[in-house]
Simulated assay, not measured.
Amino acid sequence: MGRLPRLIATDIDGTLIHEDHTLSRRTADTLARLVDSGTHVVLVTGRPVRWLSLVYEQLTVPVPAVCANGAVVYDPVADAVLRADPLAPDLLAEVARRLRAEVPGAVFAVEVEDGRSMRHDPTWPIRPYEDDHPAVRPFDTDADLMAAPAVKLLVRAGDRDPDLFVKLVAGAVAGLAEATHSSNSGLVEISAAGVTKAAGLAWLCSRYGIDESEVLAFGDMPNDVPMLAWAGRSVAVANAHPRVLEIADDRTGSNDEDGVAAYLDGLFPA
């Protein structure tokens, strides 16, 4: 990069936090130290807004977040969505139609209300900590699925190889939407065309007057690839997907080894 970055962008799951979903004190302290020194720190995640509290409770500084793979930019201080770029209902309908034709047994969920709520097929597997969550409920028909703009459409079809499944889904929605994945469970995440982590982060950087050459980004999964390719310097954690390891400029320790904090502590000594 030639000089220290002005903004640090980091994915959360598989990158910043441990596999048990905890954030280490070392990582929290390192990020707080950088913010105090004037360096911008941004969380860039596939998570919806309603999942961010689990991370903010462990941070000591309320840094902004680019959520839902770039579809939402969130200010935690004001609890406000600064920007949202959802899939419109008519686009959702066409994407769902194509996927039902191409992927037998497909089931869907949608992140609505800027990611504060979720609607899902009755057979959709719900995470244990969202059981009985008032913002998460099943829909009765596809009309409910398409009733409101969605910042993300999620699709599953039984046990699938995630890399092969995302190729199938991407082919089905080509020209209409973006398809990616961030887990090993056969879950594919669909956003509006042009919506990626890179696009959401670029929008926020423009507000700060920061060029991509001044951004250092960390990630671990295919949904991070657009951001890592866009940033001035990219770093993959040791546990990253092969595609991420292939395109990143540098590597650091795994998420369970506090790889992000270790890299930043070396770059910005206390």
Rank of each mutant, 00 (worst) to 15 (best):
W124C: 05
W51N: 11
F139W: 15
K197D: 01
A217G: 11
L87H: 05
R243W: 14
R33V: 02
G38I: 01
D265S: 07
S37K: 14
D159L: 14
K167T: 08
K197H: 06
I190E: 06
P138L: 04
L228D: 08
G171I: 01
L187Q: 04
G38M: 03
P222T: 11
V110K: 11
R50S: 03
A106S: 14
G219E: 00
V110E: 08
I210P: 02
L145V: 00
I8E: 06
A193Q: 15
R207Y: 06
D256F: 10
G175E: 01
S185I: 13
G14M: 03
V77W: 06
A229R: 15
D258L: 09
F268Y: 14
R119H: 00
V103A: 13
W203D: 03
V41L: 03
L153P: 09
A170H: 12
D163F: 05
L176Q: 08
T30D: 03
L176I: 06
V195F: 09
D211H: 15
A32N: 01
A150H: 04
V81M: 07
A157H: 13
D75G: 10
N69G: 01
H133S: 04
S234F: 02
R127Q: 10
K152A: 04
L16W: 13
T196I: 03
S213N: 10
E130Q: 12
T45Q: 08
A96H: 05
A143T: 10
C67E: 03
D85C: 10
V44H: 07
A150G: 02
Y56M: 02
V215W: 11
R98N: 02
G232M: 11
A147D: 10
A84V: 09
V215M: 09
I12R: 14
A177E: 13
I8S: 11
W230T: 02
T180I: 04
D140Q: 15
N255L: 05
H241M: 07
A78H: 13
G266N: 05
A84Q: 09
A236Y: 11
G209L: 08
P128K: 12
T30S: 06
A270V: 02
L92H: 08
P269Q: 10
M221N: 13
P134I: 10
H181L: 06
V244N: 08
L187H: 11
L187I: 14
V112R: 15
Y56R: 10
V72M: 03
M227N: 03
S206P: 00
R251Y: 05
A262C: 07
E178N: 09
V151G: 11
V42T: 06
R98L: 05
R116A: 03
A96Q: 07
R3C: 05
V95I: 15
A177C: 11
V72S: 06
G194W: 07
S254A: 15
G70D: 00
H241C: 02
